[in-house]
Computed example of a mutant assay.
Amino acid sequence: MIAVSDLPGAHRVRLTWRLFAPRRWPAWAAVAFLRASLYLPLGARVGIANVLGGLYYRGNAKRRRIAATNIRLCFPQWTAERQERAVREHFRLAALALFHMAVVWWGDERTLDRCLRVTGLEHYEAARAAGHNIVVLHCHCVGLEASLVLSRYFPYVGFAKPLKDPVLDFVMTRGRERFGGRVFAREAGMRPLIRAIKAGFGASYVPDEDLGPKESVYAPFFGVPAATLPTLGRLVRLTDAVVIPCFTRFLPDGGCELWLEPPLTNFPTNSAIGDATAMNTAIEQAVLKMPEQYLWTMKRFKTRDTGHSLYD
């Protein structure tokens, strides 16, 4: 296997003097707050997250409406009270995710082992022992950042969209690569990821977002037609890989669980819609284990075959 440092297409960040300009100080203050949170007891972090989550819920009406619309569409069997409770809980957990990012980016081995529980690694090890290339399927959820700890266990690469703020982009990228993994910029396209998979790296893939009609097919997500990227099937065909689903969820004690599942069977299928449907089904099954924790604040159903937005 080639060294991860030799992989072309990686997103490069450097610490330069321009990152310390006065207009960047608020970003550094936010970073310092997160870094300092590691020294708080877990219960205190949960308490602060409860307050921040409430402020986020009350202060961002746009995201609140998006989350409410998504949950209403995906869980129509819930009462209005249950749906509203899920929206509020989602915002609380989104705030808690900030403190878990600090654990992933800076926590020592003891802190990581105490706050993050990883199960199902045997599925990855068995697939690798059988000689398979591996794509790790994730979904957008509040605890997604915790998936980066997989690079503690095996060589791991993935995509990221560079942040507009250079300070936050620097800190986030360094945090994501601290265990030896590598981050590719989304703008680099699929070629670096394909090259890495063929070289034996586990590759993170998070395809469950609406990127418009050009590259998407319509596949059901909780029974709602959703513009879905069928790229996972093409990626598997190009790399002769298996797909191992891997998801994260916050636990009632404030910790986080990351679990890997057996490889998808009969995948890829014989059609793009079949691939997209199988992928959405795997994600649905994970969401049902943590229904408040999916990233309901993103416009998952933005592109409609009817042409009418659900978020107006």
Rank of each mutant, 00 (worst) to 15 (best):
D253W: 08
D6C: 03
V149D: 09
G254E: 02
S216T: 13
A286P: 13
G107P: 06
R191I: 03
L19R: 01
T16C: 11
G175N: 01
F250Y: 15
T281A: 14
R14G: 07
V46M: 10
A226S: 15
L93H: 07
L121G: 01
Y153G: 01
L163A: 15
V183S: 03
T248D: 06
F20K: 00
G180F: 01
P225H: 09
N70G: 09
V206F: 13
G181A: 10
F159V: 04
A126Y: 02
D6F: 01
L295Y: 04
A67W: 03
L150V: 12
Y153N: 12
L52E: 01
Y39A: 11
T248P: 02
A282L: 07
P262I: 10
G9Q: 08
R14E: 13
A27D: 12
V135A: 12
D169T: 00
L55R: 10
M172R: 12
C139N: 10
A127K: 02
W25L: 14
F20N: 03
H123R: 04
D305L: 10
G255W: 01
F99P: 10
K198I: 04
K289S: 13
E89R: 15
R72H: 08
T277P: 09
H100Y: 09
A102Q: 06
L211D: 12
C74F: 13
E187G: 09
L232Y: 08
Y294V: 00
L19Q: 04
A102H: 03
T79W: 05
A102R: 03
T277W: 07
R114E: 15
E187P: 05
L163E: 11
N70L: 00
P162Y: 12
V183W: 01
V135Q: 09
M190R: 06
H138V: 02
A49W: 02
R128A: 11
R237E: 14
A272S: 12
L238Q: 14
A129C: 10
V224K: 08
F170T: 00
C115V: 14
A219G: 11
H138E: 09
R45W: 01
M190T: 11
F33M: 15
W296L: 09
V157D: 05
F201T: 11
V206Q: 00
R85E: 14
A32H: 06
V136E: 11
E89V: 02
C74N: 05
L96G: 10
H11Y: 00
A10C: 08
W28K: 02
L258F: 09
M1H: 11
F75W: 14
H308G: 02
F222V: 03
S151E: 14
F250W: 10
V167D: 02
G181I: 00
I194Y: 05
P263K: 05
L55I: 12
W259C: 11
